[in-house]
């Protein structure tokens, strides 16, 4: 074996080794992403409109959503997940605002940031009527705070 063939063979072997290692790493990286997420559905039914009379917003604990019912405008839903670092905000009826217990962010009733480190207003979620007449909230469809669903009584 001469020097030239030795060097080309070593280069090819090293490249093959690197490629194999790279594929292995890429495979492992993909492996770490679960194929199925066993998590609460992002689109869910909250219940029948009649279950939510106008007045104080109702907190849906499993989904971390506040459901509002304005007598004139209708239903709207806000995510209770603080936009800062994901703590659950609490609605204060007295001050008509959301308070985050983790870093002191305060959100107005329309979700706007009043105080604290939160970078964005709370997200509003689409509320629709499902075929069986229940209110359906979809976390994958963010809407503006002006969005309301009016359900005729």
């Amino acid at each position: 074996m001469n020097r030239r063939s030795f060097l080309s063979l070593s280069t090819a072997s090293a490249a093959a080794l690197l490629a194999t290692a790279g594929m292995g790493l890429a495979g492992f990286f993909r492996f770490l992403f679960p194929g199925v997420f066993y998590e609460p559905a992002r689109r869910f039914k909250a219940g029948y409109p009649a279950d939510f009379p106008p007045g104080q917003p109702v907190f849906l604990p499993a989904e971390k959503v506040y459901l509002f019912h304005d007598p004139a405008k209708g239903f709207s839903a806000a995510s209770a997940v603080c936009t800062h670092l994901g703590c659950t905000v609490q609605w204060s009826e007295r001050d008509r605002q959301f308070n985050c217990p983790c870093h002191g962010s305060v959100f107005a009733a329309d979700g706007a940031v009043l105080r604290g480190p939160a970078p964005r207003p709370l997200s509003w979620l689409e509320v629709t009527l499902s075929k069986d007449g229940q209110l359906q909230i979809d976390k994958n469809r963010p809407v503006t705070d002006a969005y309301h669903l009016l359900v005729p009584a």
């Binding site: 907190f59 604990p61 499993a62 971390k64 800062h84 670092l85 703590c87 659950t88 609490q90 985050c100 217990p101 983790c102 870093h103 002191g104 604290g116 480190p117």
Partner: peptide
Amino acid sequence: SKTPNPAKAPWYFLGVQELLS
């Protein structure tokens, strides 16, 4: 569904949490 109030990190990370606020 319920964040305790106040929610504090382990004590040695509290400096970071204070900055975060």
